[in-house]
Amino acid sequence: MINFLSSLPTPVAQGMIWGVMAIGVFVTFKVLELSDLTVDGSFATGGAVFVVLTTGGMNIYLSMLISFVAGCVAGFVTGIFHTKFGIPAILSGILTQLALYSVNLRIMGGKANTAISWRNFDLLVSSRTDVIYETILVCVIFIAVLIAVLYWFFGTELGHSIRSTGCNAAMSRANGINTNTCKVLGLVLSNGIVALAGALLSQFQGFADVNMGRGAIVIGLAAVIIGEVAFGKIFRNFALKLVSVVLGAIIYYIVITIVLKLGLRTDDLKLFSALVVGLFLGIPYWKSKVHFNKKEKKEVKADA
């Protein structure tokens, strides 16, 4: 037990970094109500851009900013596929994601993996156990700032129009909102955040890998849904919803740590993740059915 508790800080830190990614997923999946698969690619893009720039001598904050911009560009491409080419959002994301695989390899000079060491660079976060609490602190600050900025943004005129586009596109157009522009903006913002998370993870693990984003969308969805199922009733405010997404990611990584300790092979992890997310995605659907049946039975009884 003590052994388990002492291993907790690492999944918490990991969960927070993936929580940043999940906030990006939240912007498309919940605010815009689009399923965007670009993230699997833009996450690795963020990591690749960061590592290449930083090892090339750039200031780490500037590198992270450029990672963010690179993610924005990826989201923009998906947005153009979706709005200008009329391709369904999910397929647009798959196209960009596939293209990004090549792009990411190019960024890393043809290598599938590029290392960055804390010995040579003053990185923000690291998985080393001796600095894990500092890492968690940095993540807390980072997430707090991110949530504050998003909370402000979605309260502005522009933010309102993006939310409205996801909520009711017909109403939005009737009120003069260019829903296509809003969708592109949402995708840009979302993938920018995702790339930023990629930059953080590459620091945390000490390398960027062309495959580091594989399955990112599933982890992001897991975080969004676990957060909603666990805290949806208490956290109604937009900022608190974002907090619950991060908490969802942390819970996800703690559960993963537990099942690995219980003997699950790391090779089987993706299978496990997919099944868990599938299960959680199904819960609201089953719930609605069960409630309906109960109501119906009661009504039948009342009639009789």
């Binding site: 309260g155 502005t156 005129e157 522009l158 939005s172 009120n175 003069g176």
Partner: peptide, 14 residues
């Protein structure tokens, strides 16, 4: 949102 119909939507409060 309706009160801003036909106007440019900026980063001012919604």
């Amino acid at each position: 949102i309706a009160a801003r119909r036909g106007k440019f939507r900026s980063l001012l409060p919604g």
